[in-house]
Design a protein around this nucleic acid. Structure first.
Lengths: 249, 249
DNA sequence: AAATTATTGTCTCAATTTGTGACAATGACA
DNA sequence: TGTCATTGTCACAAATTGAGACAATAATTT
C-alpha cells in the first residue's frame, strides 16, 4: 500500500501555481567557523540544486517562499530576505528538469509547464544551524549542508544565485544583524567575529572588533563559557531584544 | 487613415508575453536641485502610475525592461538596476486596470489576462534629466516629471515601489556613482553635493564633502563656469572615465 | 574705481574614530 | 608551580571627520 502511494507521486499542478514563476532559496547556516548552505541532491541524477518551489495562485510571494523554506528546514520562524530576481531566457534547462522528474518516476510530456522558462525570485535565509534537523528529504530529494566555497557543481544558474546572495548578504551585513540570525542565542565574541569574517571574506582585528561591537551597546553579557580548554574562558553574549539597529563594522 | 489606425489599438497579447509577470520602472532624474521621477497619467482616468510593461516570452527580463524604458525615454544607454520584486496577491487591482483600458477604447472581457494577478519586478533608472525629451505619450498615456516628495496618488502599490526604490538608491549611492548617471557630463561640486543631499535626505557639510570627493581622485577638473552671478565662479568637473570605483560619503 | 555681495576653494585645529600593540588575567594541564 | 593559548582592556599613534576661518573672485552697485 505504502509503495503504491509512493509511486503515485503528484507533480505540482498548473492550476494551483503561477506559470513561469518560481523561487529559489539560499539558506545560510554557520557551523565550525564555516558559512554553509543547504543543497538538494536529486536522486539518481547527481544533480545539485538550491531548494526552490512555485508560487501558489492565491498566495503572497513571500508567504509561498516562507512556507516552502519552513517545510524544508522545519523552522517556523525564519529570517528571509528577497535579494534578486533572475529572468534570463537561458536559465531554463528543460533537459535537466526532465531528467530529474523522470528519474523520480514521473512521465512528463513535451511542453509540460515545468519544462518551460521560469523567472525565479531568489531569497536568502539566515538560520541557526543547530536548530535544523538534517533529517529532511521531502518527497524525492535529500538535502545537506555544504560549505560556501566548497560547493559541488549546481544546476542551471544556481552557482550565480549563491554568488549574488553572498554579495547581498555582505552588503546588508550591517543592517541585518546577521549574527543574531546565524548564531545560537548565546555566543562568544569570537563566534560573532567569525561570522563577520566569513561573510566579509576578510580577517578582522580582534580588539577593534570587540571595541566596536561593545560600543554599539546591543549585546548583553552573560556567564562565562568553560570549554575545558587551557585558557581564559570567554563571556557569553546575547543580542538585546530591541537591537534592530545598525551594526556596522 | 491615421485616425482609423489610432482607434484600432492592439493590446499586448498573451501569446507574446509571460502571464502574471510584469515590470515597473522608477526613472530618476535630477533637476533644479530636486529628485524627480517619470509618471504616466492615463487618459480620462486621473490615474497616475509608474511606467511598466510585460516580459516577452523569448526575451531576457533585463532586456524587456531595457527596451521598455528606452521606448519611454528615448535614451539608448541607460543605467538600470533591479531592486525588488513585488508579489503580494493584493497588488492586483483589476478594477483600475479595466477602467484604464476601457477609457482608452478597449473592450476587455472578464478574466482577461491583463486583469489577473501580476508579480512585478521593479527597476530604477538613473538618467540625465536634460537628455529626455518631454514629448512622450506612447500609445495612450502622457508622461511627466514629478518631484519625489510631491507625488500625486499612485495606482496600486506604486507609492510603495517608489519608496523602496529610494531606499535602495540610498543604499547603493556609494557603489553606483549616482552622480555620474544623474548629472550632465560636466557639473559643479555644488550640483554633485545636491544630488547626494537629495538622495540621502540630509544636508552635507560643504567643506567635508569637497575634501572627501576630491580625495577619491575620481573627478577631472575643467574650466570655470561663469553664470553671470556676482560671485566666484565654480569649476566644472567630470567623472574620470574609469571611475567605476566606490564613492562613499 | 572702489565697495558690496554671494559663493567658492583651501587651510587649520579640534574632536572622533580606527589601527596596533602591550599586558595582565585566566582555565586547564604538565 | 609553571606553561600555554586565549581573553578583556588599556594606551598611544594614525587616520578620518567636524567645524569654522579666510582669502579669492565674478558680477553689481556706489
Amino acid at each position: 500500500m505504502r509503495v503504491a502511494s509512493m509511486n503515485k507521486k503528484i507533480l505540482p499542478s498548473l492550476t494551483d501555481h503561477l506559470p513561469h514563476v518560481a523561487y529559489d532559496a539560499v539558506i545560510f547556516g554557520f557551523s565550525g567557523s564555516q558559512l554553509k548552505i543547504l543543497l538538494l541532491e536529486y536522486h539518481n541524477t547527481g544533480l545539485f540544486a538550491l531548494p526552490g518551489g512555485f508560487v501558489s495562485r492565491g498566495e503572497d510571494l513571500d508567504l509561498s517562499v516562507s512556507r516552502g523554506v519552513q517545510a524544508r528546514t522545519g523552522l517556523d520562524k525564519l529570517f528571509l530576505e528577497q535579494f534578486y530576481t533572475f529572468g534570463d531566457v537561458g536559465r531554463a534547462s528543460p533537459g535537466h528538469m526532465k531528467r530529474i522528474l523522470e528519474a523520480n518516476g514521473y512521465v512528463v510530456e513535451q511542453g509540460h509547464w515545468l519544462l518551460d522558462r521560469f523567472i525565479s525570485i531568489a531569497y536568502y535565509a539566515l538560520i541557526n544551524y543547530d536548530d535544523v534537523k538534517p533529517e529532511p528529504d521531502s518527497l524525492s530529494d535529500s538535502i545537506n549542508w555544504y560549505a560556501v566555497g566548497e560547493l559541488p557543481q549546481l544546476m542551471m544558474d544556481h552557482t550565480k544565485i549563491v554568488d549574488v546572495a553572498l554579495r547581498s548578504l555582505r552588503l546588508h551585513l550591517d543592517t541585518h544583524l546577521a549574527g543574531r540570525n546565524l548564531l545560537p542565542r548565546k555566543f562568544t565574541m569570537r563566534q560573532l567575529q567569525q561570522v563577520y569574517e566569513v561573510i566579509l571574506g576578510e580577517k578582522l582585528r580582534r580588539t577593534t572588533f570587540q571595541r566596536k561591537i561593545l560600543g554599539l551597546d546591543i549585546l548583553e553579557r552573560h556567564e562565562k563559557q568553560f570549554t575545558g580548554k587551557p585558557h581564559k574562558a570567554p563571556y557569553l553574549y546575547s543580542f538585546k531584544s530591541h537591537a534592530t539597529d545598525y551594526l556596522s563594522i
